[in-house]
Amino acid sequence: MINYAKNYATKKMIFCIDCFKKKVDLIRAGVANISLIENIKIECYGKKVFLNKISRIIVHNNRTLKINLFDKSLKNNVINSISKSNIGLTSYEQNNNIFVSVPFLTKEKRIQLIKFVYKEGENAKIDIRIIRRDINTKFNNMYLDKKINKDDKYRIEKIVQNITNDFIKNIDCILTSKKFDLENS
Rank of each mutant, 00 (worst) to 15 (best):
Y154V: 05
E43P: 07
N76S: 14
I54H: 05
N149T: 05
V24A: 05
S185T: 08
K119R: 07
V78R: 05
E183V: 06
N96S: 15
K23H: 11
D18T: 14
K107T: 13
K125R: 11
T10W: 02
V31L: 09
L36E: 01
A9T: 03
K115N: 15
I58E: 14
D172T: 08
E183R: 05
E183K: 11
E120W: 04
V31H: 07
K22N: 14
S55I: 04
K84Y: 09
N86G: 03
C173Y: 11
I163Q: 04
S101T: 08
I79F: 13
I27D: 00
S185G: 15
D151N: 10
Y143A: 10
I148G: 00
N97L: 12
V59P: 00
N184P: 09
K115L: 13
K150C: 07
N7W: 05
F139L: 06
H60N: 07
K53Q: 13
H60R: 01
V100Y: 12
D152Q: 10
S177M: 12
R132V: 06
S91F: 02
T64K: 10
L144I: 13
L175K: 03
N62P: 00
I114T: 12
I57Y: 03
D172S: 10
I37E: 10
I131C: 13
C16T: 15
T64E: 13
S35M: 09
N184T: 15
D127W: 04
F104P: 08
N80C: 14
N33P: 05
E93D: 09
N77R: 04
K138F: 02
I174L: 00
D152R: 09
N62K: 06
E108W: 06
A5S: 15
T106N: 03
I130D: 07
I42Q: 06
T64V: 14
D127N: 15
L51N: 05
L113V: 03
K158D: 12
I79H: 10
G30V: 03
D151W: 07
I148Y: 03
D25Y: 11
I54M: 08
N33R: 10
K109D: 01
K178L: 06
I114F: 11
Y45I: 03
I54R: 05
A5K: 10
N7F: 08
V31S: 09
N76M: 12
T10M: 07
V59C: 04
N162A: 11
F99K: 02
M142D: 08
T10E: 13
K179G: 01
K109P: 00
R129P: 12
L182N: 05
I159R: 01
I37Q: 05
F116W: 13
K47V: 08
E38P: 00
I168L: 00
I34Q: 03
N68Q: 11
K158M: 09
F139D: 04
D152N: 13
C173W: 01
V24N: 01
S185L: 02
L69C: 00
V78D: 07
K21W: 04
E93C: 04
K41A: 04
K66L: 15
V31W: 05
V102S: 02
N96A: 14
E108Y: 06
L36G: 00
K72W: 02
K153M: 13
K6L: 07
I34Y: 01
N33D: 15
L105K: 04
N86C: 02
N97H: 15
L89P: 01
E157T: 07
